[in-house]
Nucleic acid binder design. Structure first.
Lengths: 219, 219
DNA sequence: GGTGCTATCCCCATAACTGGCGATGGCCGG
DNA sequence: CCGGCCATCGCCAGTTATGGGGATAGCACC
């Protein structure tokens, strides 16, 4: 059975050439193509393609948002974003929106077909530098938070308990010191972190230990 | 200039066959091979290879830990993990430890050479299903936090500002309502979230909106 | 042996938060 | 049309946190 593909791309020439590429390749067929996200959202669910090639930069609703709305309706369909954007924000948003592949438009036709095959086989094709960026997001958050981590061990301990929502007096008990000591530690923490409230400190703390990545931006 | 490769692999036969593969391929040379992480840590820095192929399952220090210690010394060297493990924990730990590629041992020789070339060119080669797992970690964690998300839009808004460390009165201004209203919203939030303090609520909130992934486990 | 940092403790005043009890009006669904 | 939820507002009492001011002791480093 050949792999069915839908295309979402506003540039008529690019759209046509993609369709031609896919239809002429053995094992692939282009079942539909769409010039806008609105059209894609209406039509693609009827075709239930195996794979969707989605441009990001569409007029009106963009490709990321289109993917976000399409994916829940077609969980079995794999979406490959096809774009010129290489910045991490676009990449992460696209993946969070449900895309499973992310290829640059400059990708040669042969590789594009390989990518479609791969995504259909359970993989996640990505252009080389894109993959590298994704992998880098796993790497050490370069946790040199500018000012902060000069916190002493004891202070860090306090902050940790603070983050769990304990009261000063509970922290005091838990650390076997008096309320006053906790108080002092916390004042020092505030100074070092340049914050004015417990919650800010906690937010900073949590963001430091997991600054992985932003949530998908809402359109 | 050919790509220099070091191998870390405890199985002598596998090690030898990898070395043979690399040395016989044009454009690649195997500059060293090591049967243990200890040996690798001592020797590899002398060779400064372009790429290291690293087995995960080593006796003594494992491959992930070896990568973690090696990478800071050789920031320009790319590490490809080469293993049989497909579980997400190993993958994430390896990437967090500084690996830039993650290939399964069953990968055919041609693809392995391609992977070495790709990692050297700034990419991040990964076996298909591995890549998919990584991408999935970006996707919505199906955020059905048990009790919570019955927060009304307005309440969610308040909680968000709360998490940023604003005072009630600042939130009130920002939302164009009175202090009393903020107060009430917050009381409702506390009830719904079953917490007794602002910080607990924030902690719950932050944990909900970004339970992305665990930090790399320390060995 | 002094200087600096950490950890420990104390007091005090102000400001902010928490948690009761209400209350009004709007909107929705039975 | 009533009950339920939401959003808005108010008052009050009690608790907690914040931000000053100290102080002492240990430890390390020069």
């Amino acid at each position: 059975m050949s792999i069915s593909v839908s295309i979402v791309e506003d540039d008529a020439r690019v759209r046509a050439s993609l369709a031609r590429l896919i239809d002429s390749a053995p094992g692939f067929r282009c079942v539909s193509n769409h010039s806008s996200a609105e059209d894609a959202l209406k039509e693609i669910p009827k075709f239930k393609p195996d794979v969707v090639l989605m441009d990001i930069n569409l007029p009106g609703i963009n490709g990321v948002e289109c993917a976000r709305q399409l994916k829940p309706q077609l969980p079995a369909t794999q979406i490959i974003m096809l774009t010129v954007y290489q910045n991490t924000e676009h990449i992460f948003n696209a993946l969070a929106a449900g895309a499973t592949g992310y290829m640059l438009k400059q990708t040669p036709p042969v590789e594009l077909l390989a990518a479609i095959k791969e995504v259909n086989a359970g993989g996640s094709p990505m252009s080389g530098h894109i993959a590298r960026k994704i992998v880098q997001s796993f790497q050490q958050p370069v946790n040199d938070s500018p000012e902060a981590q000069s916190l002493s061990p004891r202070e860090a301990e306090v902050l940790d308990l603070l983050a769990k929502g304990f009261l000063y007096k509970e922290i005091a008990e838990s650390m076997k010191v008096t309320y006053a000591t906790v108080h002092t530690h916390i004042r020092h923490i505030y100074e070092k972190l340049h914050v004015r409230s417990r919650t800010e400190a906690v937010a900073k703390h949590l963001n430091q230990n997991r600054p992985r990545r932003e949530l998908a931006a809402q359109p």
